[in-house]
Design a protein around this nucleic acid. Structure first.
Lengths: 215, 215, 215, 215
DNA sequence: AATGAATGAGCATTCATTCAT
DNA sequence: GATGAATGAATGCTCATTCAT
């Protein structure tokens, strides 16, 4: 699932690396890109030294987490595209956004970190490659959906990616019923904005501003 | 302009306070919620001591900046609502989102700062009051727009606020032509999703994923 | 005595700066260029923060100490040169080496620190200037001594500086009677090697290897 | 070549030990006594584990390197003494200083390392023994040279050793033509200071201070 | 025996905040 | 009131050393 090119690690080292990655993703998601490295290590149940042996500094760790996250999102989108029977591109598009926490993590890590770090993520070759492939898959879906007449013809894959990531970003950190609903409603409205013709009923009931107050 | 309750400051002190507030807003917007206090002071042309005399700690400063920002946004929305001739509620809604950098700052300061700080912003009474008034105004606009048949009837002010803030959030830190276009297109699409019936042509040309890569 | 160009410090800050400089010189001399910054701060009776406010990092501190030391040595040599009545250049040369601990510190800090740091010391403009002036004064003394026939004509100021610093380096860290004698004897022998003609009796008694064992 | 008392190692282990020793000597010479153990291991082409199996800690390694170096220097001096035909003690003395990098390494490792380490080197029995034998050989040469009238009678082996090591120390880390010349000139001057009577022409041309600036 | 992974203590440095001038 | 100096807690990172594979 990961995209690194490490020459092959000893089984236990591999296990540690993975544990660190998972823990770091959660920690970043919960506390932002500045969580103390020591806390990540503690949560992963390893010493700081181990953390630093695998990831030379915070930036490297962050890049790795983003890579992992992007790779997973790419996998999901690819799968959705592959399953799409002819005339079902729209559904594939919708499904490609179906587990948005990944997207949210990517976005927040990329855009909230220091400009330097953001640039590092951007410049990383593996990251570039994944983004590239992601763009291709999405582009295919967009054209197909436009061909089948479900997606409005005046948008591009960039618009779609932008909107989808914004919606994903709307997910609050704390998983919470209202947040979930707010997310689904926002998704539906945006999809409606993207759709070529019809209009679907929104789930749940209209949200009040108070609904959003719960953090 | 500000919403605090300071007893009344000497003219120069007042000037200092305002300068700090403006500088801090810019600094937070540019470098995130962790800019060193000393840098803010330097940029504002005062000593740290002065900064701390006005704002007992970073959190207080942040809260004040958010307050200021929200107050301004509320003012704008209120004005838009007031000007709205009957049958023009939709336009008022659109205009209420017309200077989105304010919104973006509010959002990022509120949601990106540490959970503790976010909670502090949330709990602050002035902040609560402004949010409350904001909700009322927005609610009025929403109902009016739905009455006049321009806004879909199954959404609430919460949905609208949520979506508008997401779109605002999409503005990248660096002001950049593509980012601007991306923002306007996203806004148009979302508004289309919100609109009761018609459909408007999007500005610019369809974005490719590559368009978004710049930054 | 110092060569910095600070715009003028508050009296207490100045006092602190000087205290840090003196303490650091002693600490470097005793424990080498790697003494913990915290220990230097502690010895100087200030917090680490204060140390870092004056000297942005270890390298800057080291450079400042070397500068200070070199400036002092230059002062001494200049004074010796100025007092030299005609025909007394040799004595001036000898006196310029009369408080060699300064020299020893300079040497060890310059040559024992990491190559990077050594380069930094070397590149520092103030350091360059002092070295330049030092070279000029020494050169004058060398020519004068050769003119008066006391210094062998086939050496240059570079040779003299090299030898004097080596001899100075021979001083052990711990001030100790034998080390003192060893230093004086070595100086006498080297001066004899440099002298045009005569030969002077060495002070003290012949040293055995055992004498040098005391560290 | 080494002076340790290891019970007898398997051939490959022996090879490893020697390789480590040689590599460590070079690394210490190049980067000072603080080179990371891991780097030494890497340079020697072994794992850290192996390094630690042979030398329980950094100090032990350092002591071993110094021992090796001293043993080699002793060997050379002994050979010089043995070859000395009657009336040639002076030349033997001179030749004993002929490969000074060894000396330089010994010196810097002994005197630049932390006081603790220096003490350890000092206290080590093998080291003591070698130093003892070295003192004896040197002492013989000194007396012989004084008997044949080439060495001034008022110096002892301690003086000679002190001066020779200082001169050796003058060699800069980077091998460099000017440094080489500076070393040779310094040696000649010191020897002149030690010589009973005559005076030899110095090699090369007089050095300027600028000559020494390189590095 | 060799390897290289894991550990954690140690040190450099930064920055929020307090306080003397 | 303003200033900027001093403080020290917090955190990133390195590296000697130990130990599982």
């Amino acid at each position: 699932m990961t995209a690194g090119a490490q020459p092959r690690l000893r089984a236990d080292a591999r296990r540690n690396r993975d544990r660190i990655l998972v823990t770091a993703a959660a920690a970043f998601a919960d506390d932002g890109p500045d969580v103390p490295m020591e806390e990540i290590a503690r949560l992963a149940g390893v010493g700081v030294g181990t953390l630093y042996r695998r990831f030379p500094d915070r930036e490297a760790l962050l890049v790795a987490v983003v890579q992992d996250s992007m790779a997973r999102a790419l996998g999901r989108t690819r799968a959705a595209a592959a399953e799409a029977t002819p005339g079902q591109a729209w559904d594939a598009l919708v499904r490609s956004l179906s587990s948005p926490r990944e997207l949210r993590l990517m976005m927040s890590l990329t855009s909230l970190a220091s400009p330097t770090t953001a640039a590092a993520v951007h410049a990383d070759p593996t990251t570039r490659r994944i983004r590239q492939e992601y763009a291709e898959v999405l582009d295919g879906l967009v054209r197909a959906a436009q061909a089948e007449g479900t997606l409005r013809p005046d948008v591009g894959a960039g618009d779609v990616a932008h909107l989808l990531s914004l919606v994903a970003y709307g997910l609050r950190r704390t998983p919470d019923a209202t947040a979930e609903i707010a997310f689904e409603r926002a998704r539906a409205i945006v999809l409606d904005g993207l759709r070529a013709r019809p209009r679907t009923p929104l789930p749940g009931r209209p949200l009040t501003t108070t609904d959003l107050e719960a953090e």
